[in-house]
């Protein structure tokens, strides 16, 4: 324990980089998921095809392959070298965004057809229908899976040390190399990853509750802080992003 406490500031630096990549990647993944998810619900074949290609390609490639590709192949092909942290954010964002797009598409399609009919009867345009009625309702359904995806994304960032980003895992390696204490060095990293995950889960749970309240629902499991701290339910599908 003494061992870890002495090196705590070092770990904190790494954790901060991990958090930055996690938040940056999540923001990118969110934008991509929304854009391609909505494209996937349009009747015309072209936007749907674009969405399918994005989803299948970036779900098919492991985030790690993507990171390698961006770090080694892209500069080779284009002569342009991305900032490494940015490349890391791009890779995990593109990867998780593909999973998110499927979540968004499914959630939009799950909004009852009768709701869409009501918007026709009120003569709302496609844009108004999406913004005012469909997305706010689909939102509550997306959030639990988004919560899982954020955790998956955080876990996926553990490979970014491979392209030279000094994240939490990189720090564990440094400590190991300096002291030879692999077990303790990596134990420290695991504990901090776990803490970050718990904070992320807590934050997503807050968003979920707010969304459910907006729909006039009481979240399952009751209200109050106790319900917030209870462990989340992992749905059958939706998890399992590379990382």
């Amino acid at each position: 324990m003494q061992f870890l406490i002495e090196r705590f500031p070092l770990y904190l630096d790494g954790a901060w980089v991990t958090v930055q990549i996690t938040l940056g990647g999540s923001a990118l993944a969110f934008v991509l998921a929304m854009a391609f998810g909505i494209l996937g619900t349009i009747k015309h074949w072209l936007p749907r095809a674009v969405a399918t290609v994005y989803v299948e390609v970036f779900r098919g490639i492991a985030a790690m392959v993507l990171i390698f590709w961006m770090a080694y192949v892209l500069p080779d092909l284009t002569g342009y070298r991305l900032d490494r942290t940015f490349a890391a954010i791009l890779a995990v964002g593109l990867n998780v965004g593909a999973y998110g797009a499927e979540v968004v598409r499914a959630a939009i399609n799950a909004v009852p057809k009768t709701q869409v009919e009501a918007t026709v009867a009120l003569n709302l345009s496609w844009f108004q229908r999406m913004r005012l009625v469909v997305l706010p309702q689909a939102w509550a359904q997306m959030l639990p899976t988004f919560g899982n995806l954020v955790i998956e994304l955080m876990k996926a960032t553990a490979v970014v040390y491979l392209i030279g980003v000094v994240d939490l895992t990189a720090i564990a390696r440094q400590v190991r190399d300096a002291t030879g204490e692999t077990v303790i060095a990596y134990m420290g990293a695991l504990l901090i990853y776990f803490l970050i995950a718990q904070v992320l889960i807590f934050g997503m749970r807050l968003l979920e509750r707010r969304a459910n309240r907006k729909l006039g629902r009481t979240p399952p499991g009751g209200t109050g802080l106790g319900a917030l701290l209870r462990h989340p339910v992992v749905p059958g599908a939706g998890g399992g992003v590379s990382g």
Binding site: I151, M154, K155, A156, T157, A158, V159, T169, A172, T182, V183, Y186, M187, A189, L190, Y193, F194, A197, Q198, I201, H231, V234, G243
Partner: peptide, 17 residues
């Protein structure tokens, strides 16, 4: 829950050691 919310890569190195 601990296993699910921490990276596989770090777990692998930890266990291997």
């Amino acid at each position: 829950e601990f296993i699910r919310t921490t990276p596989l890569l770090v777990q692998a190195v930890f266990v291997f050691a």
